[in-house]
Structure formats: C-alpha cells, structure tokens
Design a protein around this nucleic acid. Sequence first.
DNA 1: CTGAAAGCGCTTACAG
DNA 2: CTGAAAGCGCTTACAG
Lengths: 335, 335
Amino acid sequence: MATIKDVAKLAGVSPSTVSRTLSGNAPVDKRTKERVLKAIKALNYKPNILAKGLKEGRTKALGLVLPNITNPIFPLVARGVEDIARKEGYTVILCNTDEDKDIEIDYINKLKNRWVDGFIFATAGKDAKHILDLKEDGFPVVLLIRNIENKVDSVIIDSFKAAYRATTYLLGLGRKRIALVNGDESLSLYSERLEGYKKALADNNISIEESLILYEIQDMEGAYKAVKGLYNSGTKPDAIIATCDPKAYGAARAIKELGLSIPKDVALMGFDNLEMSAFMDPPITTISQPWYEMGATAIRRLLQLIEGDGKKPKVDMFDVDIIRRESTKISKGEI
Amino acid sequence: MATIKDVAKLAGVSPSTVSRTLSGNAPVDKRTKERVLKAIKALNYKPNILAKGLKEGRTKALGLVLPNITNPIFPLVARGVEDIARKEGYTVILCNTDEDKDIEIDYINKLKNRWVDGFIFATAGKDAKHILDLKEDGFPVVLLIRNIENKVDSVIIDSFKAAYRATTYLLGLGRKRIALVNGDESLSLYSERLEGYKKALADNNISIEESLILYEIQDMEGAYKAVKGLYNSGTKPDAIIATCDPKAYGAARAIKELGLSIPKDVALMGFDNLEMSAFMDPPITTISQPWYEMGATAIRRLLQLIEGDGKKPKVDMFDVDIIRRESTKISKGEI
DNA sequence: CTGAAAGCGCTTACAG
DNA sequence: CTGAAAGCGCTTACAG
C-alpha cells in the first residue's frame, strides 16, 4: 500500500505537506493542496492508522466489555454504542467475558496496550478493583449497568426501585404470593432486585416466604425447570416476577405445561421489554429498560471523558417503565 | 506508561534485549532474562501494540462485518468468532452495516488502514465488487452466509436446499397451500430460499400461487402484519414457512389472533432454531443452522489465510436439520 | 549472548 | 506556505 512518502514524491512535495493537507492543522497553498489530493487519489492512499496512533497517542477505538453478546439485552447496548461510535469516527472492540473476572482482566491488559482510548464496561460483577485501577491509570471508563460507589461515570437504572415497583404493581393487582425468579446475586443488579422485592413486600406487611424465591436462575431453560420444580414441591404462587424476559418465557412454558393459565392462575412479568415479549401468548408485562439509549449515553459520556472533560464522575440514572400486557391482566378486564 | 526504554534502563540492558526476552525470537542469557522480567514486573510494562504492529505489519485484530447485531442470529455468529479470536490472541472489531453498501465500504476503508489483519463478512448483499477488490488488495477475507462464485473463502449453508427441504417436508405432511414469508430478495439467501421453495412445489406438481408468497418481510412485526393481511385478503394457506424464526413468531401471533389453531388449521415453521422457538406455544418446527459453529469455522479459516495458507478459496458448506416440533404436528399425533 | 543503528509511517515543532 | 529533522515505541538485521 502507498505511504505518505509515495504521495509526496508523486505530488512533488514533502511528506509534511501531505500530512498537513490531510489534517488541516496548518495552512497549505491551494494549488499545492490540489496536487496532493490528486496524488492521494491516484495512489488510493490511506494513512496508516497505527503510525498515526503511535504519534498522536490515541487510536479512536474503544473497548466494549460485556458478559455475553448472545444475551439479548447486549446486542441492543452494543448497537447503541456502535451507532454513535461510527458517527464519531470511533471503532468498537467487542469483548465477551462471561462475567469471568480473569477474562475481564485479560481483556483490560490487552486493550490497555494502546489499543483503545477508553472502555465501556457493561458487566456487573461485585469485584471492581481492576476497574478502579484502570481509571486510576488514567483510562477513560464508563460503566453501564453497574455503579461503583459513584467513583466511576455510570449509566444505570435503579434495580432496587425497578423491582420494588414491579412487586408493588402486582400487589396492587391483588396478588399476594409473589415468586421471584432471580439471577446470580454476586451481580449487583440481581442482589438489588432481590432487595427491592423484599422491601416492597415488607412495606405492604407481607411476610417473605423463602420458598417463593428462586436463586441463581440463569436463563430460559433454567427458569423453566425452576418454576416446574417450584410447583412440583407444592408451592403455588399467584404471581411470578422473572428478572429478565427470557426467564419469563421459560416460566410461561412451565406454567402452561402444568395446565395453569396466565394470568388467571398466576400473573407473570419480566424485565427488559424485549420485542419478543409482545408476541408471546399471552403478551408479557415487563419492566422496560432503554438499553439502546443507555448504550448511546454511555459512549457519549466516554467520548467526553476522552476529550478531557474529566471533572467529577457522573451517574446517569434512567427511568424504567412498566409495560402492562395481558400476562398480568386482572379479572375485571383491566390491565 | 512505561516504555521498553524504561525497562531497559532499570534492568541495565539495551531495549533490544528487552524485546528479545519478551519475544523469545533470539537467545538471552538466563540471568539477564531474570533481571529484565523483574524490571518489567516492577514497572508493570506493557508493550505498545501500535508500535509493535507498525513494525511487524500486523495487528492481531480483525473486522467482523455484519448487518445488525440485534438480529438474533448475529450474536451467535459473533460469539463463535470472538471465542476463537480470544483464544488465538486476536481482537474483534464489531461493524454493523444494516446491509447498507456505503456503510460497508466506509468500514472497509477505515479498517484497511492497518487496523486489521483480515475481515469476516456476514452480510449478504448481492453487490460484491468491494469485497472482491479487498481480496484483490491482498487482505484475507472470509464470507459467512454468502458465496461469491467460489472466488472467496466462505462458510455457508445451502439456502436453496434448506428451503427445498422445508417445503418438501410440509408437502409430505399433506399440506398443499404453503405460504412463504420471505425476506429482502436483494440478499442472496432470500432469493435462494424462494427458488428452493418454488422448485419443491414444481417437483411435486403443485402450481405456484403468487398470493401465497409474501415478499420483503423484515421482522416479527412485519410478518405479523403481512400474515394478517394475507388472511384478510381471503387467502388461506394450510402451512406457512417463515424464513427466520422471529418472522415465525410474528406469524404465530397473527394466526392466533385470527382465531386459528397451529398446527391444526395451519402448520408453521421457521428458520434458525433460536432457543426461543422451543419455548413458544406451540413449540415451533424450524430449520437449524449452526450459527455459532459457522462463526468459529469462519475465523479459523481466516486465521489460516492470515498465516499465509492462501491457496484456492474453499467453500465450507454446513448441513441444516429440520427440528420437528408441535407447530407442524399432524393429526395422528406424529410429529 | 548483547548493543547500536536503522526503520516501520506518521506528525509537529523548528527554521526559513 | 514549505521542508528537513526528530521522535512516537517497537523489532530485527548487523556487527561483535
């Protein structure tokens, strides 16, 4: 491939002049500029981004670190991040960690080697030292999902409040025995949801029944089995909150196979408002979280940090909505 | 951050020696090596990957170009690619194009500037000149989904055959009026599926009924509307093939809202075997395509190309399976 | 086994 | 407005 020297030679100027016409960082005679541009075109010259990055100390790339892109909320986040990145001339490096701290650290070490100008973490592990260290090292960092004691810029929803509202909503519909299909509590978002659920029950003078809480449920299949197990062991909830929509789908399947009806026998709600949820039978009530918008917000903030707008860490808290659908409809026909 | 010079100074050696202990490309005295490693640790030295890449002419990064990561097959592909990439020390740059050729070309131009050692294209537009040019330029390229006249390495399934088999399968179940909910035919995989569908009908002496073919349906919502429209216009299929599972979900919803039963009134099948499909009501028969494995195969091939195993382009054709579920069950109780 | 030097392809003070 | 030179941080022939 052609280098800046080739262009310079063809245009009869110095490499400096080629660089300057390209960057616009210094005045170049109009005539000269034209010759240079012609040469660039003729040779199909593309500047070597590595050399540029080495000199300038930045790459216009960023690392997007997330647990698993096949978990359906993350494509939305990734798309939000990438859309803005592309518009701003940035490039996104995709890193799946499976919430494994070692993989996360491996990726950090790799990308720290001048690969990227900054990081977005959409992971939620409790351990945060490596992320704080990264920030300490001077790397721009934005968290998506998680907040670390307001020490790092983050874009989040209030998981506690979301679960509190979901629970209160079901209580308001007259449901009393609400099961929670929760995820791995070593992830803050799940431990917070559990707390929100418990607090809502407590505030309504409903005692917490341990048998109604299903812990560490990972996915659709897991929720399906756990809910079947729940009924098989004789526990009969009149509502189920699944902490993500796929878990709600698994629960729905279990409920139907048990010959029960949603919402008549048991109301069901999920989290995330995946497009799919409106197409289920019945359509599933869910807590909507604006994942795409949160991704876009995270990268906008990251770009500010990269541009040097460091200041004090800012925590962006997004609101959630309850999307009411048939899976929680009450008998009188209201939703 | 510490540079190789800092390490050299601390260890009392030259930068060359530091480089050599790190690369292992030349012998270094055991004692010296120890001192160097100690210095590296003390300074927490990480080699600058840009400088390394500039010198060595490679980056160990690759571009993964796909239409839209929020389309649920692509996270599977991306995960297959990234898992292997990480194990081999490579890094993946995520590029969403929305099948927009201009965006695709923009990304190519950007990544060509020494960003990446190779490309995986999981796009399916008919136009391929820019990709052939890229290959011509000497960049390793692997196609997923699409084959360009056997000129470029590719990892694909036979879309024609898959649709042919799906159609034959439904005919074998006694269905005669099979509707096809197809996608944008400017993408080869959809035009091939249409051909497979038509050929299967022809081979079984069933005339093609234009009103049963729904063109350019994009997604769940689109399929929902199109299938409703189909019935509302008086056309009554006894089976529907949707060219991806989400479209099958949309179709399912429409069918139910019309008060019809699956599979009694109309059999339904999709493509892709998304996890979700087993959890639908009823579970949906689908053509399984091994997306994760195809992603993994594509990057393995790309790494071979990068290592210089150029030779002749190889086309890897994966087999599809029909995953039989209740949505096509015939009356006698068989599936 | 080790070091000094050249060079990868850029950008940017410096000098004119 | 323009060029020659230095330097970003590495690696690798070359010489010893």
